[in-house]
């Protein structure tokens, strides 16, 4: 018993000595650009996707760049607001939330697909629902799940459309049961497994999960596409130039727009990045305010 304890302890001590060194490896001289992203899908994919972006940015910008994963949409916004990260990959609504809290912060780039994004409503095959151009009355009374509460394509925009289609009634009044799955990959899994009849998801996550073989077309299918709206974007804090030098924000924006490596773009489900600005997200802001998500 004592020997086992001693061995375990030695291991712990060794870890104590070795680990700070190992973990301090990224503490290169000068400030580190830290960024995060809303966790909208499968985590392994997020780590792969943003790991590549971090490496790319570090090589092009000449400063250390680090990606830190978070578990929820509000955690991403909070770390941006708190100044823990300087850059973030936000959805439409989370971007508006974050920029409202951090004066001077700017949307600097978005995916080409994000200028006209559409939510997908998916249904379990067992419901017998067929695709339709409009929200069909037959969806009422089913069980239904959103993604994250502040997801643009997984909640805010589809809820807006649902309210329009069902005479201003809240989703809770339209459906038998309304849930928040937390992210798009999970929404797909829950609808596929039958835990919910219906759900709304982000088309890029839907495509990526399909390509990864995680969608069983015999169990789940798309039954509706929403009208277009602006969605994801890279947002930078306003105090970054003071830390990294004048023109840094410009340089990051240009670097992001300049990405043409398919190995980086493919895990995003984006063909390329294009410049963005805060004003483009005014429609999302209006809807979010109407939904009571923003003051």
């Amino acid at each position: 018993m004592r020997t086992v304890a001693a061995v375990l302890l030695a291991g712990t001590m060794l870890a104590g000595v070795a680990l700070p060194g190992a973990r301090a490896a990224d503490a290169a001289p000068g400030p580190t650009l830290v960024f995060t992203a809303i966790p909208d899908g499968d985590e392994t994919r997020l780590v792969e996707r943003f790991g590549k972006v971090a490496a790319y940015l570090q090589a092009r910008l000449g400063v250390p760049v680090r990606y830190v994963p978070v578990k929820s949409y509000p955690a991403a916004v909070t770390s941006f607001v708190n100044g823990g990260v300087q850059l973030a990959w936000f959805g439409g609504v989370t971007g508006v939330q974050a920029r409202a809290k951090v004066p001077g912060s700017r949307a600097i780039a978005q995916g080409a697909e994000d200028t006209a994004f559409r939510s997908l409503m998916i249904a379990n095959r067992g419901t017998g629902l067929e695709p339709a151009p409009d929200l069909q009355p037959a969806i009422a009374g089913r069980t239904f799940t959103f993604g994250a509460r502040t997801s643009t394509s997984g909640r805010v925009m589809p809820e807006y459309e649902l309210r329009k289609a069902f005479g201003g009634r809240a989703p809770e009044q339209v459906f038998a049961r309304v849930g928040f799955s937390g992210d798009h990959s999970r929404t797909i899994q829950l609808v596929q497994s039958g835990a919910y009849d219906l759900g709304v998801v982000d088309p890029s996550v839907w495509d990526l999960d399909r390509k990864a073989g995680r969608v069983d077309p015999s169990k789940v299918s798309v039954i509706w596409r929403s009208p277009p709206f602006p969605d994801y974007q890279w947002t930078m804090r306003g105090d970054v130039d003071a830390t990294f030098g004048p023109g840094f924000t410009r340089k990051v924006a240009d670097t992001l727009v300049g990405i043409d490596d398919p190995a980086i773009l493919a895990p995003f489900g984006r063909s390329r990045f294009v410049p963005a600005d805060n004003a483009e997200y005014a429609p999302v802001e209006v809807v979010a305010k109407a939904a009571g998500l923003l003051d």
Partner: peptide, 29 residues
């Protein structure tokens, strides 16, 4: 295994070791 590694005499090592290895996590600003 806690009865193996959590003993009166391991406490100082555990505390010091824990303080050393604690991950930086996401900086808070």
């Amino acid at each position: 295994s806690r009865h193996v590694w959590a003993r009166p005499w391991t406490v100082p090592f555990l505390v010091v070791g824990a303080a050393l290895v604690l991950p930086a996590g996401l900086p808070g600003g």
